[in-house]
Simulated assay, not measured.
Amino acid sequence: MKELLWKNITQLRTQSPLVHNITNYVVMNNTANALLAAGASPIMAHAHSEMEAMMNICQVLVINIGTLDEYWVSSMKKAATQAHQLHKPWVLDPVGAGATPYRDEVLAELLQLQPTIIRGNASEIMALAKHNTTPTKGVDSSAESNEAVAAAKFLVENYQTTVCISGATDIILNKNKEIHLTNGSELMAKITGMGCSATALVAAFSAVIEDKVEAVTTAMALLGVAGELAAKESKGPGSLQMHILDKLHNIAEEEFTSSLKLEIKRG
């Protein structure tokens, strides 16, 4: 499978899909740079009047609820509705799920618009499925990835989606497949918006790869390996962020395939 994932990475660079991001303003620059480094093309648009036109020209949509407000929520709903009508994939990042009633209300409405993929940390996935027994710690997870597998399966079953639980082990699953990845570095948690960059990369690959578990696996593998390799030459989170962007851009096949830690549980 390693060779297949590498083929997907080169396919992204060749096709350079246009990724529409309705994301939080804390991470816009990071997210755009990650997409560009990997080979995709980012757009960050929020105006109600251009949502329909934007989804006509973009191949995929990211909805990240990190910095919610009522205007942006309307943009999210318009864009997700349009994506669904056009049969284009869209990815939901339920940042801070469970933190406030308003956040949960918005997420409940977005779930009804049938996200193609959901990517979040364990606490967020559990809160989204209402299986959370521990409070969400802001945007950080207070649970391990394997604790959220039942919640992820609930979301898969009820919303016909693919779920990625991010953590020390990334778990990607749908009805038929389950894959575990264990690349990365603890230092990545010290960079704001790493999860948001992951979601954007997931969206980019989902635009060019039909099998969504395969698409998510490629994205998470690329970022995990890039982070792990970048950490070896970084002195802290500042230089790590720079080196991750460089590695997303110039990673070679041999270093990717030799570093990848992947386990197929099902499928």
Rank of each mutant, 00 (worst) to 15 (best):
L5T: 03
W6I: 11
N8D: 15
N8V: 10
I9A: 01
R13L: 08
L18T: 14
H20V: 12
H20E: 04
N21F: 05
N30G: 01
A32C: 13
N33A: 14
N33G: 06
L36G: 06
G39Q: 09
G39Y: 02
A40C: 09
S41V: 06
I43H: 01
M44D: 09
A45L: 08
H46Y: 08
A47K: 03
A47M: 08
N56S: 11
V60G: 10
V62Y: 04
V62I: 11
I63F: 06
N64D: 07
N64T: 07
N64A: 12
L68A: 11
Y71V: 13
W72C: 08
V73L: 12
S74R: 14
T81I: 02
T81M: 11
H84G: 07
L86F: 07
H87D: 12
L92K: 05
G96A: 12
A99E: 03
T100C: 10
R103C: 07
Q112A: 15
P115W: 10
T116V: 06
T116R: 04
I117H: 07
M126C: 10
K130T: 06
H131G: 03
H131L: 05
T136C: 10
S142L: 05
S145N: 03
E147W: 00
A150E: 11
A151T: 01
F154C: 07
F154R: 06
E157Y: 03
Q160I: 03
V163E: 09
V163S: 11
I165E: 00
G167D: 06
T169L: 02
I171E: 01
L173G: 04
L173R: 10
N174L: 08
K177G: 11
N183Q: 02
G184E: 03
S185H: 10
L187P: 00
M188E: 03
I191S: 02
M194L: 05
S197I: 05
L201N: 00
L201Q: 01
V202T: 07
S206N: 06
V208N: 08
E210L: 09
A215L: 10
A221K: 00
L222G: 04
L222E: 01
L222T: 01
L223Q: 15
G227R: 04
L229S: 05
A231E: 10
G236T: 10
P237W: 08
G238D: 05
Q241R: 14
L248G: 08
L248K: 04
N250Q: 09
E253T: 09
E253H: 15
E254N: 15
E254F: 11
E254H: 15
F256L: 12
S258N: 14
S259H: 06
S259I: 03
L262K: 15
R266C: 13
R266A: 15
G267A: 14
